[in-house]
Structures are given as C-alpha cells and as structure tokens.
Amino acid sequence: MATKHQKTLARFMVAPSVLLLLGWMIVPLAITLWFSFQSYNLLSPGMERFIGLTNYKYFLSDPAFWQAMANTLMIVGGVLAITVIGGVVLALLLDQPIRGQGIVRILMIAPFFIMPTVSALVWKNMFMNPVNGLFAWLAKAVGAQPIDFLAQYPLMSIILIVAWQWLPFATLILLTALQSLDSEQMEAAEMDGAGAWAKFTHLVLPHLSRAITVVILIETIFLLSVFAEILVTTNGGPGYASTNLTYLVYSQALLQYDVGGASAGGIVAVILANIVAIFLMRMIGKTLE
C-alpha cells in the first residue's frame, strides 16, 4: 500500500538487480545454446560448423551422462538426508542444558567456514588415504583391512565430505528455529500428558518445517553444483563413478576441449536444474507464505 509515486520508485530501484541477473543468465546461456549446435573443438580451431542436434544426441546417449545425472541426484539427496536428519538431532542436542555451550557451538560451526578445496584435500589425504590416512590406521588398529574409500566408495566418500561441510549450516538454522519455539506450548503439551516423542512429532517437527524447507532450498542450490570436492578428490572417477553433471561438462570442455558437446551438456544441466528449481520453488512458495 502506498502512493503511485512510491510504486514507480520501487520498480526503478529493483531494476538494477533484475537487469544484472537477467543479463547474467541470458547472455552466457544464449552463447552456450549457440555452441551446443556447433561442432566446436578447441583442438581443431577453424573447423566450427552447424551440426544441429548431434551434440545433444551424443551427450544424451553417452552412458556417462546418465551416470552423472544419477550421481548429481545422489549427491543432492544424500547430503540433504544426512544434514537435515543430523541437523535436527544436533539442534535438539544443542538445545539441551549443556556446560560450555558457546564453545560447543563454535566447534560445530567450524566446518562451514572451511573452503571446499581444503576440506576435500584434508579428507582425501589425511583421513581416507588407504596407506597413511587416519581411517586406515584405525582399521589396522582393530585388525581390519584398510578401505580405499575414494577408489571403492567414491560417491559415498564425496557425499560424506560435502555433508560434513553443510551439517553445521543445517544445525544452526534448525537450532535458531528450535529456540523460537514457545515454551508455554511445550508446557501445555506436558500438562496434556504428551511424552517426549509425542512432543517431538506434534510440536517440534511442525515448528521446524519452515526451517527445514529453507535448509533444503539453500543447500540444494549449492549441492547441484558441487565441483571442487570432486575435482580435488577423485577427478570424477574411477570411470564416471563420482562424476556429476557439473563435473562432466567441465571435463568435456576443459579436459577434452569439446566445446560443442560440453555446451549441449551445459544446456541439459540447466534444464535439469530448472526442473528441480520449479519443483523446489513450488514447495518453498507454499511454506514461506
């Protein structure tokens, strides 16, 4: 509610952001789309020509694509499951009367500040390395065979590394939400004879639903394009076992120099992301009213 004058001003002030984001989205996307119809390889310059949908045909029929797609969803889904469930549990734990809560929180939040390249390197070498890693030593200490995580369970290892980075984020948001829960409501439920589990499912969880939605939204945005962790640890391998779409496009373009094919892949990734986005936005739009 306001005057026309105000409304006009508002449109005017929102314009720079809209134009910038529109430009940021459309210009490179248009170029990518253009390349995706071209035979364009950096190794054979000057040979560019229009080849229609051939790039798409190759890209979509490449088994690597389907695996990358499955991996992308696995990473998003796996990390979300771990961080949301873990986040709820940790938030509940931190909400208890604890001595030294400040320090506990500082320790828990720390992984969120760590750059992905560093955390991937540290996990890869100092923990998951089958010879010198701490996990290998632990395995040997109990008399088991050390596991070569990144070779045997590459995708799961990456999910673990990424989940470690995002767990604090989920925990913090959920903790803040938890602390805003009306204590009178909880006391009323206690008076009504609700047990701990009933209180959790009927009061706490519904109260957290909004926060959980936000966590899912924000994390999905970042998880769809996990890159550095893969680049540093497995390079997408072995084979394509830990290649996601982002990494596949990257390797097609900058490792195989196939700009046309990579562009087609990029467009496919954009379409996939948009499907996820529409789905998510629907869900969020409803919750965030």
Binding site: T32, Y250, N274
Partner: peptide, 24 residues
C-alpha cells in the same frame, strides 16, 4: 515470484555457462 526467480538463477549450473564466460 520475482524473488523466487532471482533465487532460481543461483540454481543454474555454473558449468552450463562456463565456456561462454571463459570466452567472454
């Protein structure tokens, strides 16, 4: 809707626009 659209631009995979950005 505008806000949601803005957020959705963040979902656009960077890989999709890497090449043109690199060339630009």
């Amino acid at each position: 809707d505008l806000l949601m659209w803005m957020l959705s631009t963040k979902m656009m995979p960077a890989a999709g626009v890497l090449i043109p950005m690199y060339l630009l």
